[in-house]
Nucleic acid binder design. Structure first.
Lengths: 212, 212
DNA sequence: TAGATTGTTAATCGATTAACAATC
DNA sequence: TAGATTGTTAATCGATTAACAATC
């Protein structure tokens, strides 16, 4: 069931819809029109309707959208119900921060393994998960079949670990290592470059200064 | 000198060029053509030339681009030479990770203050910087005039702190609090939603599965 | 000079917005 | 039914790609 592939721009916006709808739901809002949502999100109503209709008609003429069901639908589109399992490779500051700050559950992702090589880190416990040594990676993955690897390890270690995890059948790589990993061949990668984001901010500040 | 405003897409690509050129430079490559760079970066040569020409002719016909000067030029465009000063508000896991993992220096940003309210955190030292109590924020900012605030604090604290920092004259907000802050009025915000990135990854995995 | 590669214009493509008929 | 708002088509706009003359 491969609908003629959704534009990347739409996919990038879906998590944001999901977030706003989740907030509305939490605030007890039961229905919302594309017009209302467009005001809150600072996008056009037209775009919202267009985006949602890539996946089917979730609304009702004259009424709008039911917040709860739309939230659920977008969740399904984004794979919340797939209950993907994840491991974190590299439990330094960043691995730590991700383990603690990301609401995995809301997104249907189950964090089930932490790995590192530092003797001082291996054996410690975070959120009820013990950090395992990388030696145990194969054994663990064969037993637990995680789909997602979160790479918070040094850039120079990334390529070898990437290969190793591909061998083990992992499908998705959330990559913070600053070494760009390519998608393809059944593999999906999401390369996060926080430094790029900081530079975009600096450009913005600079542009604002010059606008005088 | 407000050139008819650069498309956002171009701006978003500049840090990536900066990164690749930095790597080339480190590897001792002195010149590169748009064709070669396009292969490495998986974009079209046309786009590279088009993007760069938003800012002026950095290349030379028949030769290509000088890696070092192009790297420097893009750095200038992105504000590296502005030497913006930054403070981090909230030294939990994430604030910590950012303080330690981001190469601020390469981007011309100087990290000069850390703030928190937890008694267990205030007074501790990271990278030679002592974590100060939020009570000291006004005093510190008046004395040091930082332009950038990195917000790694709980969502519910964000709006009040945002207001307080705007009062103090901060211009750019690198916001990890998941509470979306709006730009405008001389203020630039860069809202980072790591959870969105994770969901995009999940969508990608799901799509790949369905392609069978 | 001949070859290479840019800067830049023109053509194509896709994404966003506007409009409105369908319908709840 | 009348009013509201969607789903969807058509119009607009912008971004990407292709092409090529300029030129190092």
């Amino acid at each position: 069931m491969n609908k003629k592939s959704v534009p990347l721009g739409v996919v990038k916006r879906l998590p944001r819809y999901f977030r706003y709808l989740g907030d509305l739901l939490k605030n007890g809002v039961t229905r919302i029109s594309s017009g209302e949502l467009s005001e809150r999100m600072q996008v056009t109503a037209s775009q919202i309707r267009q985006d949602l209709n890539c996946f089917g008609g979730f609304g009702q003429q004259g009424y709008g959208y039911n917040v709860e069901s739309l939230y659920t639908e977008i969740g399904v589109i984004l794979g919340v119900e797939k209950h993907y399992k994840a491991v974190i490779i590299g439990i330094g500051n960043l691995g730590n921060a991700i383990a603690n700050n990301i609401n995995f559950e809301k997104r249907g992702v189950k964090l089930l393994g932490l790995f590192d090589v530092a003797p001082s880190t291996v054996g410690t416990v975070f959120n009820g998960l013990e950090v395992l040594h990388m030696d145990k990676l194969e054994e663990f993955c064969l037993a637990n079949k995680p789909e997602i690897a979160i790479l918070t390890l040094p850039k120079k270690e990334a390529p070898a670990v990437f290969l190793r995890l591909k061998e083990l059948g992992l499908k998705g790589f959330w990559n913070f290592s600053n070494m760009e990993l390519n998608s393809g061949d059944g593999i999906t990668t999401e390369n996060v470059h926080l430094g790029d984001s900081l530079m975009t901010l600096c450009f913005g500040i600079k542009s604002t200064e010059e606008e005088v």
